[in-house]
Design a protein around this nucleic acid. Structure first.
Length: 297
DNA sequence: CATTTCACCTGGTGGC
DNA sequence: TGCCACCAGGTGAAAT
C-alpha cells in the first residue's frame, strides 16, 4: 500500500532515471478503470513530450512534461537545470503538461527496458528515447492515470496539506471541532495528504494516542506530539526506502525496509517493543487498526 | 455539512 | 488437491 514514503521513494527513483528523457511512444491497456483521462487522449498528449521532472504530491506521482514535440533538446545537465530554475517570464520553458499517477493499493511505476518481460496487469508502457521504458502495473486497478494539458487545465494540486511541511498551528487547526476518531482524520486526504493505514497507526503509537480518540478533543501539546511523530516516522521510512508489506517495490523493483521498524502495524498479538503488552487490532472507520493498549492512552 | 458506509478490484488465506 | 467464501485497503460516491 503505497503511502507518502513509498511514493516519495518511487518519485526519486523514477526522476533519477527518466528526467530529461523523451516519450517516443505510449501504449495503454484495455481495462477502463485505471484511466481518469481516456487512453487515446493520454497517447496523444504524451507522445513527443519530454519528461522535465518527476515528483510527489501527497500520494500522487506527478511527471512534469515539456511542450509537445519539436522542443529543442537541451544538453542533459545545464540547460535542463536552467529550464527548471527559470522564473515565470520564460513561458516556453515551463512544464506544459502533467502525467499524474496514483498507485492505489497495488500500483507500481517501474523503469525497465522494452525487452524485459511484461508483468501481468501492466496497464501503461511509455517508450523513451534513451531506450528505457516506464511501466505502470496494477493488479487491483485501484490506481489512476491522468493527463493534464496545462494550456487548458490547471496544474495538479493536492487538497490536503503535506505532513512533512505543515506547521504546528495549521496542523492543530485541521482537527479543531472534528467529531471523528483521530485515526480516521489522519486518513482523510482532504486534511493531510499522504498518510495511509501504516503511518497512521505507527505515528499514533509513537505519539501515545489511542486511534479512537476524538480528533477534536486532543490537546494542542498532544497534537504537536503527533505532528512530530508523523514527521519522524515518515522521514525515517523514506530513508529506508519505504515499507514493503505486501508487494511494494521502488522504481527498480527493490523492496523497502521500514516494515522491519513497524511497532504496531500488522503486529497483532505480538509483544509491544516498548512494554511487551500484546498489540491489539480493532476496526476504526472500517479499517484494520493496530495499537498498544498500555503505551497508547 | 460532517461523518459513515459501501463498491470497486485481485491475490492470498483458510475452511471443507 | 481443489474449490470457494472472505478479507485487505485508497478513494470516491452514496447514504445517514
Amino acid at each position: 500500500m503505497p503511502e507518502l514514503p513509498e511514493v516519495e521513494t518511487i518519485a526519486r527513483g523514477v526522476n533519477d532515471r527518466v528526467k530529461g528523457d523523451l516519450i517516443t511512444e505510449a501504449w495503454f491497456g484495455s481495462h477502463s478503470e485505471p484511466f481518469k483521462t481516456p487512453p487515446a487522449q493520454q497517447t496523444d498528449g504524451l507522445e513527443g513530450r519530454r519528461i522535465v521532472a518527476v515528483h510527489r504530491t501527497g500520494k500522487h506521482l506527478v511527471c512534469e512534461l515539456g511542450p509537445p514535440s519539436g522542443a529543442p533538446l537541451p544538453n542533459h545537465g545545464s540547460a535542463l537545470k536552467d529550464a527548471l530554475n527559470t522564473p515565470l517570464d520564460a513561458s516556453q520553458d515551463l512544464p506544459a503538461a502533467q502525467w499524474i499517477v496514483h498507485l492505489g493499493m497495488t500500483g507500481r511505476l517501474l523503469v525497465t527496458f522494452p525487452s524485459n518481460p511484461v508483468a501481468a496487469h501492466t496497464h501503461a508502457r511509455l517508450r523513451l528515447a534513451s531506450g528505457r521504458e516506464l511501466r505502470f502495473v496494477d493488479p487491483r486497478r485501484f490506481g489512476r492515470l491522468e493527463f493534464r494539458d496545462l494550456a487548458h487545465t490547471a496544474a495538479f494540486a493536492a487538497a490536503g496539506a503535506d505532513p512533512l511541511t505543515i506547521g504546528k498551528d495549521e496542523f492543530a487547526s485541521l482537527f479543531r471541532g472534528r467529531r471523528l476518531a483521530i485515526k480516521a482524520a489522519l486518513l482523510n486526504q482532504e486534511l493531510l495528504t499522504g498518510v495511509g493505514n501504516i503511518y497512521a497507526d505507527e505515528s499514533l503509537f509513537h505519539a501515545g494516542i489511542r486511534p479512537r480518540t476524538m480528533a477534536g478533543r486532543l490537546t494542542r501539546p498532544r497534537l504537536e506530539k503527533l505532528r512530530l511523530a508523523l514527521c519522524e516516522v515518515l522521514e525515517h521510512s523514506i530513508r529506508l526506502g519505504g515499507s514493503s508489506v505486501s508487494d511494494y517495490v521502488d522504481a527498480d523493483g527493490v523492496r523497502g525496509f521500514y516494515q522491519l521498524e513497524h511497532c504496531v502495524y500488522l503486529r497483532t498479538g505480538q509483544p509491544c517493543r516498548c512494554c511487551h503488552s500484546p498489540i491489539r487490532r480493532i476496526l476504526v472507520a472500517g479499517r484494520g487498526t493496530h495499537y498498544c493498549p498500555s503505551c497508547q492512552r
